[in-house]
Design a binder for these strands. Structure first.
Lengths: 131, 131
DNA sequence: CCAATTACCTATTGACTTAGTAGGTAATTA
DNA sequence: TAATTACCTACTAAGTCAATAGGTAATTGG
């Protein structure tokens, strides 16, 4: 359900949050500390930047920085970027594809309920809790 | 997280539970009612039989039958048969692979907690609730 | 100004999973 | 004994995951 990519994204965010938030943190250093391939992290960090969760600058002393305080991030917004879907099944959730059985389906409400429980749990969990 | 296979397994169990439980229900009829390929269902129903959730007999008037009453089934035991893992991440849950970062990992407890919430929800939900 | 540093970009690979199909054999009963 | 049904093995095409490779563009310290 939550892939390596998602866990790396969270690990990366925690790593940056733990450092002095005023400076930009180079991906090279994060990769070294976390024991994750820098090349692989590049693809992940891009999603975080595109979504506005991080800002990055190039060049010497460049790197990445949080755009808000750690207690303002919930881990749902982080994880959903790297996962195709955080929903339990395809017929519920954000990218729900139309379910042809919807009218006769006896299980949809169960999936929706479970989905909601998971989402609420992840949304309640703040980045600051991991520091 | 929960694949078509899992949803089909549940749909199949509900279908059988809805019929007269004394008779054996032919897969052909279930497939027709549910609008699912019979061939595909064969692979799914095998897991249910192997796990003892259903019993099947061959020949004319053969088919499948529940081995206990619908309120004695929870949907966790049904879904886990078709899914590689119902865990949120690979480092927690039933088939947990060793996590090398375990001692330094700040996120494991979160995954474990979420995992537990999902498991408890599914275990509480009985097959009889879908009839 | 230039060379090192760093983010940022595109493409590719191999392994695995998923969803589904195909073509059978074995058992049971009307 | 013929129809019916479960049961079995193998295969395929598409998609995802994890990771690598080889660059270009931007920024800054010396």
């Amino acid at each position: 359900m939550i892939s390596t990519k998602g866990r790396y994204a969270l690990a990366l965010m925690i790593d940056i949050a733990e450092q002095d938030t005023k400076n930009y943190i180079a991906l090279k250093d994060i990769a070294k500390r976390q024991g994750i391939s820098k090349k692989y992290l590049e693809a992940i960090v891009k999603k975080l930047v595109d979504a506005g969760l991080l800002e990055g600058i190039s060049g010497k002393n460049g790197g990445y920085r949080l755009t808000k305080k750690p207690n303002k991030y919930n881990i749902y917004e982080i994880l959903k970027l790297t996962e195709i879907s955080l929903s339990t099944v395809s017929c519920v959730g954000e990218k729900a594809t139309a379910c042809e059985r919807k009218n006769t389906c006896k299980t949809c409400s169960t999936w929706a309920e479970l989905n909601d429980i998971i989402k609420k749990y992840l949304q309640k969990k703040k980045l600051s809790e991991f520091i």
